[in-house]
């Protein structure tokens, strides 16, 4: 087994996640793609932790999971708010921040 194969798996998942973020219209689906990205990063964390025989990698993967939970909570709240105000969760429609 090589460290490389885990890193490549993570890279593939990361890129798929980025693709999802950039192409999905639905706000909830965008959030899901972000979860995919975070998972890819987590694989890297754990793989390097094992590679260096250091629990730090695993600990930070746990922190990332916690932060991801917070992110989903706030993100969904925002999506719900947008839905409530605009009757649509198409992220392309949310362009009120235009300068």
């Amino acid at each position: 087994m090589y460290l490389t194969q885990y890193l490549l798996l993570a890279a593939v998942l990361f890129c798929i996640g980025v693709y999802g973020v950039l192409t999905r219209r639905n706000g909830v689906l965008v959030l899901m793609s972000i979860e995919l990205i975070l998972n890819a990063v987590n694989i890297n964390m754990v793989a390097f932790g094992t590679y260096n025989a250091d629990v730090g990698g695993q600990v930070f993967a746990l922190f990332i999971i916690a932060v991801a939970a917070a992110e989903v909570g706030v993100g969904l709240a925002i999506v719900l708010l947008i839905y409530r105000n605009r009757r649509s969760i198409d992220v392309s429609d949310a362009s009120l921040m235009r300068g």
Binding site: Y6, N42, V46, G49, T50, A61, L62
Partner: peptide
């Protein structure tokens, strides 16, 4: 994958 890497708790 985590289990493969020996990170049970994660």
């Amino acid at each position: 994958v985590y289990i493969l890497l020996g990170a049970e708790f994660a």
